[in-house]
């Protein structure tokens, strides 16, 4: 099973993320280094925890969406979550509803000024997803194709509105909006980690028995019902949870693409199609991936930071294509007797 190895990889990535940076810390001279304590506790540790939880939340949301929509291409962006969050955040940034100092993203000191952006992103995400789920409903039941189409439409609409805001906004607002759209973990601080730190374990605990149900669910609504699965309830709970996780992640770190799509797919290619242990696996793999991506974003052009969302796409895209090619190339030989 993959959980042990994934846990080991996660541990290594987390350690590297804490120790490496513009100032490299070696375990043996931590005590001697004068700034080691503050760097570790105030900068590196909260940032690593934020990266791990955001990565885990996005990957778990991706697994839930792909399983429930029975579509391997489903991605948190598809439900309108990311678009709604972006619109909420862009509105606040464009209207300048924060204290001026918070407009410069990357201010690590301020929790309160950051709140309006995160709050608006969260609200926008929930508004968008509730609109999508309402539009995709037919006769009290969710119509999955309808949900997908409504999600794409709402996402596009939000994207257009964000574009309009960027045209109308002043230079500094424009800069902070576009920075936010690429995603960043630079604003990490202990205080606003709280929602994700509470939300993620609750979500993982709530879904601890969902693995087998998600497998049976793949049979189709009718067949799954025949096996005793409460299909409607599973759909509602999973979509709600995926939306909440994405909304939290986007509110705290901006839009970080590819993790929700890449992690579930990569795990399926390497570990097989069953969802039995997929949710904890995805949490570990998503956390590892974002830790490494953020490490890369900090180190590549240090001391300048790259937007981490850009890096996940730059690294994730080719890796994904490589996995895909490997599977397609091996596909012909695998048949039965």
């Amino acid at each position: 099973m993959g959980l042990g190895r994934l846990g080991l990889l996660f541990g290594l990535a987390f350690t590297a993320a804490v120790l490496l940076g513009p100032v490299a810390l070696r375990p043996w001279d931590l005590a001697a280094h004068p700034a080691a304590g503050p760097i570790l506790l105030e900068l590196r540790l909260p940032r690593a925890v934020l990266a791990a939880t955001v990565g885990a939340a996005l990957a778990v949301a991706g697994v839930l969406l792909q399983a429930i929509l029975r579509n391997p291409l489903a991605d948190p962006a598809l439900l309108g979550v990311s678009g709604g969050a972006a619109l909420g955040a862009a509105l606040v940034l464009a209207l300048g509803i924060t204290l001026p100092t918070a407009l410069a993203f990357g201010s690590t000191s301020a929790f309160l000024p950051f709140m309006p952006v995160a709050g608006a992103a969260f609200a926008g995400a929930l508004l968008a997803v509730s609109l999508v789920l309402r539009l995709g409903r037919r006769a009290q039941r969710l119509d999955l194709a309808g949900v997908l189409l409504a999600g794409v439409a709402v996402n596009t609409l939000c994207g257009a509105a964000v574009g309009l805001l960027m045209v109308l906004a002043g230079d500094s607002a424009l800069r902070s909006i576009s920075f936010w759209l690429f995603g960043s973990l630079a604003q990490a601080s202990w205080s606003h980690l709280a929602p994700l730190l509470l939300g993620l374990p609750i979500a993982l605990y709530a879904t601890r028995r969902w693995g087998t149900a998600l497998d049976v669910y793949q049979l189709g609504d009718r067949e799954a019902t025949h096996h005793g699965l409460p299909v409607g309830r599973l759909q509602r709970q999973a979509l709600l949870l995926a939306s909440l996780l994405t909304a939290l992640a986007v509110a705290l770190a901006g839009i970080i693409g590819f993790i929700g799509l890449l992690v579930p797919q990569g795990l399926a290619l390497v570990l097989g199609p069953s969802y039995r242990h997929r949710l904890p696996q995805a949490a570990l793999a998503g956390a590892t991936l974002l830790l490494l991506a953020d490490l890369g974003a900090r180190l590549a052009l240090a001391p300048t930071e790259l937007p981490v969302g850009m890096l996940t796409a730059l690294l994730g895209g080719p890796f994904f294509l490589w996995l895909l090619r490997r599977r397609l190339a091996g596909g012909g030989t695998e048949g039965g007797p």
């Binding site: 793949q218 049979l219 189709g220 025949h226 096996h227």
Partner: peptide, 28 residues
């Protein structure tokens, strides 16, 4: 509960997930 009282083979199946044949049967 219905699931304890009947098993049903429907006329059409939409499963499109690369489980092995054995894994599909295990879903029961």
């Amino acid at each position: 509960a219905w699931a304890q009282r009947r098993a049903v083979l429907t006329q059409r199946n939409t499963l499109d997930h690369p489980f092995t044949a054995e894994e599909v049967v295990c879903l029961a």
